[in-house]
């Protein structure tokens, strides 16, 4: 009981203290704010320079962030949103909630400009496998579809990587996408609601390959000292996911919000993102990438779909996917 009172008292005092310093509300996805995510380092680093209090609000993932903004509308208390991606950018823009953004220098492998958002990290989707189990990985989506290899993917109707794969196939095969899905159908062990279930099932040995990122093997190598995982380079090229941040037009701390976005693209935050989000930094820090990243594959071709065409492509591509797999 005593500790509860103390905690309540502490929380009360903290509220008073907070009332004197400006608060920056950052809306982001769940895993960003955990102790393994970039949140704690970025919060501490920014608070050391801004004389402000960073408070996180969360939703499940990028898509959930957008849904939450659509629900809240102009009433949202968020100042900055961190964690949308290029596939959601246009829908997010159409809410009219985002302020125009400044253009920024990046080290992305593709040209990037957006009227509202800045990129903070990015990755290539790829199929990850265990080198000890699979000695001869496929070299293309077609080869994968023709093989007996078992894969686990995510549902494009509930997960951003799942949607990424559907757009990948569409970007690579255009009108031939449906035919490729029909050939891929017998390779797919199952489809999961999100990334973590799929990756978990793969690690448990339920499939030979899983849809993830080219950077996933770096996690196993650097954090677990395990070099058995690799991503397979595909001849068609690899679809990119670029994660975005933006300031809300209704923010009552616009200067602070812009300052935060600048910090997010600075060396300290970019360095933290690499080994917490396990993605490539949008602007490579001066010290370069950590040791271990040189072992990763570098796709020769990066596939994207322009933000303003995603909405039109998405529905048809998901329907095609569903029709092919439901047969």
């Amino acid at each position: 009981m005593k500790t509860i009172l103390l905690a309540a008292g502490g929380a009360f005092l903290a509220t008073i203290a907070a009332a004197e310093t400006p608060v920056l509300n950052v809306l982001t996805y769940d895993s960003f704010t955990t102790e393994w995510g970039p949140g704690p380092a970025i919060e501490a680093g920014f608070e050391a320079t801004c004389a402000c209090d960073v408070q996180f609000q969360t939703a499940g993932d990028g898509a959930a962030l957008l849904a939450r903004l659509q629900l809240e509308g102009a009433a949202t208390t968020a100042d900055v949103v961190v964690g949308l991606d290029t596939n959601l950018a246009d829908a997010a823009r159409q809410t009219g909630l985002f302020a125009p953004g400044a253009s920024t220098e990046t080290t992305l492998p593709v040209a990037f400009s957006d009227a509202n958002f800045v990129p903070f990290d990015w990755g290539w989707f790829a199929f990850v496998y265990d080198k000890k189990q699979l000695s001869n990985p496929p070299k293309s989506l077609t080869e994968l579809a023709d093989s007996e290899i078992k894969i686990i993917i995510q549902d494009p109707r509930s997960s951003t990587p799942g949607l990424g794969l559907v757009l990948w196939v569409k970007a690579a095969y255009a009108d031939g996408a449906a035919a490729l899905w029909e050939k891929l159908a017998d390779n797919i062990v199952t489809v999961t609601p999100g990334w973590s279930e799929a990756y978990g099932l793969f690690l448990e040995g339920q499939a030979d390959m899983v849809l993830s990122y080219t950077t996933s093997p770096a996690y196993h190598l650097i954090a677990e000292n395990d070099d058995s995982k690799a991503a397979a380079p595909f001849e068609e090229g690899h679809f990119m996911q670029i994660e975005l941040a933006g300031r809300l037009v209704g923010s009552d701390q616009p200067a602070l919000a812009d300052q935060f976005l600048t910090y997010l693209l600075g060396d300290a935050a970019q360095t933290a993102l690499i080994t917490t989000n396990w993605m490539y930094p949008a602007r490579t820090p001066a010290a370069g990438l950590p040791k271990g990243f040189e072992t990763l594959i570098t796709p020769t071709k990066s596939l994207t779909i322009p933000a303003d065409q995603v909405e039109a492509t998405r529905q048809a591509a998901v329907d095609e996917w569903q029709a092919a797999l439901a047969k």
């Binding site: 499940g60 898509a63 959930a64 957008l66 849904a67 659509q70 829908a91 549902d155 109707r157 509930s158 949607l163 159908a185 797919i188 062990v189 199952t190 489809v191 999961t192 609601p193 279930e197 099932l201 996917w321 569903q322 797999l325 439901a326």
Partner: peptide, 28 residues
């Protein structure tokens, strides 16, 4: 939702709950 989708093996095993999830989360 999760059990049906994961063990159902794909979109053949689509439940109404998945549809609700999809329409609230992705399509608004």
């Amino acid at each position: 939702f999760s059990v049906a989708l994961i063990l159902g093996g794909g979109p053949r095993a689509t439940t109404i709950e998945l549809g609700i999830y999809q329409s609230l989360r992705f399509e608004f």
